[in-house]
Simulated assay, not measured.
Amino acid sequence: MAFNQKNQQVSGGQVNIARGARISGGIHLGGGPGGDAADLAGVLTALLAEIQQAQSAGHISEEVAEDVQHEVRQAARTAQQPTPDAPAITSRLSRARDLVSGIGTAVSLTTALTNAIHTAQSLF
């Protein structure tokens, strides 16, 4: 959905809840459609760190952490292919989310995985 913000004046901060911004000429700023595998790689790298933190804090077991990390790493490898397979990426991330979704202490990790799925869907 596009709209004209010509002559818009903002005092203070402005939040773009739709994420990302397109400017004439194909310039793209931020997340949302039009990103690339590098955008997703950053999200997945941060996600791997969050998985490790959840395991270190005792929110998830070592076994669950290893399984979730495996799915995220496989999603990252798929995302780095010349022609990324979006359904395969989102499937891997969904499996990772399913592994932690029933663990009450891993709510933030479940949310992070859901956000990674949305990022992947918006990029490919």
Rank of each mutant, 00 (worst) to 15 (best):
A106C: 06
R95W: 07
G25Y: 00
I89L: 05
A54W: 00
Q52L: 03
G12S: 14
N115W: 08
R73Y: 01
L109H: 02
G102L: 11
L123M: 14
P84R: 12
Q81W: 03
P84T: 11
G25S: 01
R97Y: 08
S101T: 11
N115T: 13
L99Q: 06
T114A: 15
H28A: 04
A49N: 15
R22E: 12
D67C: 04
A37Q: 10
A86F: 09
T111Q: 14
I103H: 03
A106K: 06
M1E: 05
A2E: 09
L44W: 05
S56F: 00
N115P: 09
I51H: 05
S61E: 08
D39G: 11
L93K: 08
A96N: 10
L123P: 04
I60P: 02
D39M: 14
G20R: 06
H118D: 15
S108W: 08
T45F: 05
S108C: 06
A75M: 03
G25I: 02
T90D: 12
I89C: 09
T90F: 09
T78I: 08
L109P: 01
T105Y: 06
Q80I: 00
Q81T: 10
V68N: 05
L47M: 11
Q8C: 14
A106I: 11
D36E: 13
I27Y: 02
G20D: 07
G12H: 14
N16C: 04
A106F: 03
K6G: 08
A112F: 07
Q53D: 01
Q80F: 00
V72D: 04
I51S: 04
A106W: 02
G12F: 10
I17R: 15
G12A: 15
S108A: 11
V107T: 11
S24I: 02
R73C: 06
S56M: 00
P87I: 07
G26W: 05
V100C: 11
V72L: 10
Q53S: 01
G32D: 03
S122A: 15
L48S: 14
I89H: 05
V100E: 07
P33G: 10
T111E: 10
A86Q: 08
L93H: 04
G42T: 02
S101Q: 13
R92T: 13
Q55L: 01
R77L: 07
Q55I: 00
T114V: 09
